[in-house]
Design a protein around this nucleic acid. Structure first.
Lengths: 250, 250
DNA sequence: GCATGATACTGATGGAGATCAGCCCTGTGC
DNA sequence: GCACAGGGCTGATCTCCATCAGTATCATGC
């Protein structure tokens, strides 16, 4: 009874939907997942979910809300590495390495499932499919970080900003939170600047430029693509790094 | 007999040494690995090992030589994402996603073991420890890419260059190819510039600066740290992201 | 009703690094 | 012996973006 409702919950979640795209999960696999997935926790804005250096023993799966992972440098500047949206795994590295090498902060109020280290490792040992599926999501996350790297290294401020918003839109579409017209975006221009390696002033000017060029607007928590194709051409966005070819394991 | 010698070979390799640091591997695990590991291939400079867009069915484990993974942008500029040194896994993402999202090019003549997709996935299914160990190496690679991202986003040219060379040194020390004094480095200043998101001219000037400040020299294929501690302080290098706390699985 | 703090926005100035255009050196092939 | 290419190195100029120093707007609490 309880197990059944748990299965229902997990099978319904953004996370299971994402995993299923990678690896076909059996009912037994789903049971294991739902066990991992059980404990929900809430996080308020202003309190980090994970602290760098912390010897952390759990990771999280985001159920609702947005978060971001970041690092702080000597000078006090920060670099946001990635944003997490519902369905995303978060803090996997800090569990595998046992001490966190980055911080994670909620951007909106967040609800997340706490995944305990021992549960996760046990699941890996006993259900290889889950292990492979998680490896897959980790690889996809890495593909995104790689694209951010290219973004910072070789694109100018305008291309970089546009590219980033296009990626965000593509990710959100996968979990049904947006379309080619745009998406709801709780980020401030400061968030963008920390993610893009720019100053907030420049982000503001770039957004004005993109608006004046008729490509997109960023206003009141809404990103609207005014000319999607032009923006794709301008930024050189190629979404193949986000995609895959369907389930690898039958 | 053959199996034994194979076990010997694999147990001796930089790759198995790295995996063992993460997860204790049984003789049976080593046998599976050595089977994956059997086919050696040579690659000459000037011919990519992996091409972006290619529907690739194998990955490689680097036995000797250096390689780099990179992406080419519209304008023809390129961004090197990472360098691979002996013991590194390479092309894992392209196997998991079935089509490569980046290129890999040898920097020196390379010898590498070819890992076929089906062998790898079979190993994951039947020997969960290997799966976990590979997840671990993948996470470590991601940690490095993340640090490169921070490097590009928030450090200036000199800090960035110094930080990068310190990281390289730390990685090479793990496989016995250098120490705190320095290491043999086959990279050209062009390689550095493509990795650091700088122009070759700037890399040259930054290297001069670091030399004049008595921190390091980069000359004739040798990186020599003249003042390691000063360089660490100057660049804000903190090597914890490369380390881990010993075997996770008993 | 007013202070306070986020966030958005703007003009002026300066600086880090790109770009352009070269030179020098060394190894390699013919 | 010479041509040629790749890598290292340098000065001059320009540009993109950071920084500084603000103003404007809106929600929040007291």
């Amino acid at each position: 009874m309880a197990a059944e409702s748990a299965v229902f919950t997990i099978a319904d979640s953004a996370f299971a939907r994402k995993l299923s795209a990678y690896v076909k999960l059996s009912p037994a696999d789903l049971l294991v997942l739902s066990d991992i997935y059980r404990r929900k926790r809430d996080f308020a804005v202003g309190h980090d979910m994970i602290h760098e250096g912390e010897r952390s023993h759990h990771a999280y799966i985001l159920a609702s809300g947005w978060a971001c992972s970041y690092k702080i440098l000597n000078g006090g500047t920060r670099q946001i590495v990635d944003f997490q949206v519902p369905g995303d795994f978060l803090g996997l590295r800090s569990v595998l390495f046992r001490t966190a090498d980055h911080n994670v902060e909620p951007i909106t109020p967040v609800q997340a499932s706490e995944v305990r280290q021992q549960d996760l490792l046990a699941a890996f040992s006993h259900t290889p499919r889950i292990s492979t599926a998680v490896l897959w999501t980790a690889s996809r996350d890495e593909a995104m970080v790689v694209e951010h790297l290219v973004n910072l290294g070789r694109r100018n401020a305008a291309e970089r900003t546009g590219h980033f918003l296009l990626e965000l839109a593509a990710r959100l579409r996968l979990v049904g939170m947006g379309d080619k017209k745009g998406f709801a975006c709780p980020l401030s221009q400061y968030h963008l600047s920390d993610a893009l390696g720019l100053s907030a002033v420049r982000v503001n000017r770039v957004l004005r430029l993109l608006r004046e060029e008729g490509m997109l607007t960023f206003h009141k928590g809404q990103v609207v693509f005014k000319n999607y194709d032009a923006l794709v051409a301008f930024t050189g966005f190629d979404r193949t790094y986000l995609d895959h070819d369907g389930p690898l394991l039958p």
